[in-house]
Nucleic acid binder design. Structure first.
Lengths: 212, 212
DNA sequence: TGGAGGCGTTGCAAAATTACAGTGACTCTG
DNA sequence: CAGAGTCACTGTAATTTTGCAACGCCTCCA
């Protein structure tokens, strides 16, 4: 491995810009902070910012990169005898149970979503993010099941699974921005997950069961 | 003015390298610290170190750049009716009187000189430094008196003046490395300056008197 | 309504920094 | 005494960062 000086500095610079930008956005709102502000606070030029982040929104949503692959990771890590959907349900219940770092995204989930709520460009990006999540899930299902390229089943099941998460996230976001208590919301979210599970068809709940 | 980002970072980088290098030298000695050590501690590449400092010695002697022009500045700042030599004598007495930042070079003068004492390349540089001081003094005397280019007097008087400083510095260095107390040494240095003044000829003491 | 100014974004040349390889002098060691 | 190793230092190409100017979109204001 032996990470060189150049690689390390690149990583640190990108991380510093992202951290500082997120901090400024949380404090003043996405619209009130200019890219120039971020650059100055991070002690770099504006071009350097754009060197690492294609657009201003990426400064805030960058840390959601991991989110794109989150469901896919859950599926790949399912237990023996467990289906893809049940693995996702189980992991989501576990995450919600660990209230503090709400939903595993970051501390202050409500503050984070609040920034997005007041920034149209960011909301637009979130929709695109859902597509990415969906695609990642579908791709994973295809890999795990070895389904044919023209098999529509992964697409459909993947859509259901991706929907589970967005439903829960949407619910939590709405309740949190409404000012509800985090512990209350998380308890209700668990109930919501139960209802979601009842809504799912048998085909979805038993798709892509891991051998063993 | 408006110092740009590039210039500011350049200045900060050079300063950081110099500071860290000096610290390492004071702690472990000049010979025991490699340029690679300095580079790593300063979080830059070896080439960047050489980009700012032509040779390893410069990492330590860099902060003596001001010293080169110190006597020249004293001369240019002499009072009305005061000669170049007397201005230097006066300023030196004043510096020595303010014991703490010994001789205006830096805190911990003895530690500083101790590093030099144990590093042949550094000692060699000090001799070169004296030439530079001498040249600066001579050049200043020529400017101030408007002496002809072939007039040997500035050269001779300048040599005497430069010698004053090196004599005092040499004395202080010797006594300090011998472990004498700083206050004692500075008191003796003042006596030494008196003796030096008595040794100087009338021509030297009255050269380049500022009009007024 | 028109112009001035702020902001996101891009392109390009210059400057700074790094990686890599190499040279020469020196020390240590078998 | 041969060879391996360390270290100061240099050269060169690649990479990163910066400075500068520009474009389009938008808002504000006269």
């Amino acid at each position: 491995m032996a990470e060189g000086l150049r690689e390390r500095k690149k990583r640190e610079t990108k991380q510093r810009i992202s951290d500082i930008a997120t901090g400024l956005f949380l404090e003043h709102g996405f619209m009130a902070v200019t890219v120039a502000d971020v650059a100055e606070a991070a002690d770099v030029s504006v071009n350097t910012v754009y060197n690492y982040f294609p657009a201003k929104e990426d400064l805030f949503l960058d840390r959601m990169d991991g989110v794109t692959q989150r469901l896919a990771r859950m599926i790949r890590g399912r237990d023996r005898g467990e289906s893809a959907a049940r693995a996702v349900l189980r992991e989501l219940r576990q995450d919600i149970g660990a209230v503090s770092p709400a939903y595993g995204l970051m501390d202050g989930f409500d503050a984070f979503m609040n920034v997005i709520e007041h920034a149209p460009p960011l909301k637009a990006r979130l929709f695109h993010l859902r597509d990415q999540v969906h695609e990642a899930v579908v791709a994973t299902l295809r890999e795990e099941t070895g389904a044919a390229a023209d098999d529509p089943l992964p697409l459909l099941v993947g859509g259901q699974i991706a929907w589970i998460e967005s439903a829960v996230v949407g619910y939590i976001t709405g309740e949190m921005t409404a000012g509800r208590k985090a512990t209350t919301v998380s308890r209700e979210a668990l109930v919501l997950l139960d209802e979601i599970e009842e809504l799912l068809g048998e085909k979805v709940l038993t798709y892509a069961v891991r051998e063993g």
